[in-house]
Amino acid sequence: MSEAPIPSQLQGQVVAFRADASLEIGSGHVMRCLTLADALQAQGAQCHFLCREHPGHLCELIEARGYPVHRLPQEARDTNTAVTSVTEPKLDHAHWLGASWDEDAAACLPLLAELAPAWLVVDHYALDHRWETTVLDRLPNSRPRLLVIDDLADRRHIADLLLDQNLGRQAEDYRGLVPEGCQVLAGPRYALLRPEFREWREASLSRRAREPGLRRLLINLGGVDKDNVTGQVLDALITCDLPENLQISVVMGASAPWRESVTAQARTMPWPTEVVVNVSDMAQRMAEADLAIGAAGSTSWERCCLGLPTLMVVLADNQRGIAQALEEQGASSTLDLADLPRSLARCLAGISAPHALALMSQQAANRVDEKGADRVLSALSATTQES
């Protein structure tokens, strides 16, 4: 059944995003917000970003994509100007904010008051209902609708819409954490994928059916990879039995602290190994790769959409659920960082059997299609129409 056409309720609306990137946070939150911003802009919305200037922030990248960035100071504001905090347990990821939640709210309030957005999108593990209530209740103009993007289901929100695109996630997981009227968009059918993944899906799946085998390996362990897991993977690959004609492509972010070291290491590999930075053709690279070694973050849904078999690396605790769910579905295998050479050799042996790559590819493609952003836009438009 085809998806319903997207209404035009977002035409001319201002949408503000509160999301951060850093060496610790990584780039995933900002990147998926950029994907949503692109989709909203195509519908005529005007998107703005509010970001704190952490080490490894992506403010210049956001601006290069055409969106205004309202930069929050890296240092905490004077507590005398901050909103009084409510005594509640500290969030597990509170330190990601670079300030207390009430200091952050005080910094965002004048910016949001000037923007007067119709929608506020919050994608930040360090923010919950306290920040949301403080900001929305104190804005002098009409109260914006609130979309929260989350992966954890570990704190309360006052959202109108909540998006959790992770495999195995259900709306019931947020029962008691969101208002009864909040619509929860749960599961990878709502995965925020850029349009190029829609464009490459058919060609990618067709090629895998025609040309099984391992000739091109893609390595992408996030935009930051602060612990140089990429270097560990390259070291471990040297000990593995791989085809002589293998070609390796390593994709890194410009803010990756180990980029120069990995580039030097790539020159010593037994197979031709390139290191590329901040690529604009990621969908094509994934479509042309036969196997990926990648982080178990939001890029997982991009790989699934293109049916790219993956050996997955868990780089943060919040990625464990994704890795486990995809492995249980036969869509990937998970590497053990504690014993990477042996784990990598075992996983590669497991996919060397005839049709093993093709089977993993099909299971991955069955988990995610290319229409998630359309479904999110439809929900945003429908909720806007209700106001």
Rank of each mutant, 00 (worst) to 15 (best):
M1C: 14
E3S: 12
P5K: 11
P5A: 14
L10R: 01
Q13K: 15
V14Y: 02
F17R: 04
R18E: 08
D20A: 11
D20S: 09
A21C: 12
L23K: 12
E24Y: 01
I25S: 01
S27N: 08
G28M: 10
L36G: 04
A37E: 06
A39K: 02
L40C: 13
Q46H: 14
C47A: 09
L50S: 02
C51K: 08
E53N: 12
L58S: 08
L58Y: 08
R65H: 14
H70L: 13
R71G: 03
E75V: 07
T79Q: 15
V83Y: 15
S85R: 15
E88M: 13
L91Q: 06
H93N: 11
G98W: 10
S100K: 10
E103C: 02
D104C: 07
L109F: 10
E114F: 04
L115F: 09
A116F: 01
A116C: 12
P117N: 03
P117D: 01
L120N: 10
V121A: 07
L127D: 06
H129V: 04
T133M: 13
L139P: 06
P140Y: 08
N141S: 11
L146K: 07
L147I: 07
L147C: 01
L147F: 08
L147M: 05
D150Q: 10
D151K: 02
L152H: 06
L152T: 01
H157L: 11
H157M: 05
I158P: 01
L161W: 09
L162F: 14
Q165K: 11
Q165T: 06
D173L: 07
L177M: 09
P179D: 10
C182S: 13
L185E: 04
P188T: 01
L192V: 03
P195L: 01
E202V: 04
A203W: 10
G222M: 05
V224A: 08
D227W: 09
N228G: 08
V229H: 09
T230G: 03
V233E: 00
L234F: 05
L234I: 05
L237G: 00
I238E: 10
T239L: 14
L242P: 06
P243M: 04
E244P: 00
L246C: 00
L246I: 02
I248A: 00
I248R: 03
S249A: 08
V251S: 04
A254I: 13
S255K: 15
P257W: 14
W258A: 11
T268M: 06
M269G: 00
P270T: 04
V275D: 00
V277W: 12
V277A: 10
R285P: 05
G294P: 02
G294Y: 07
A295Q: 07
G297Q: 11
G297E: 02
G297A: 01
E302W: 10
E302N: 05
C305Y: 03
L306Q: 01
M312V: 04
I322K: 03
A331W: 02
S333A: 06
L335G: 03
D336T: 05
L337R: 15
L337G: 07
A338K: 15
D339S: 11
L344P: 04
R346F: 11
C347H: 05
A349F: 05
P354H: 11
A356F: 09
L357G: 04
L359F: 12
L359R: 15
D369S: 05
K371R: 14
G372N: 09
V376F: 05
S378I: 15
A379Q: 10
T384G: 03
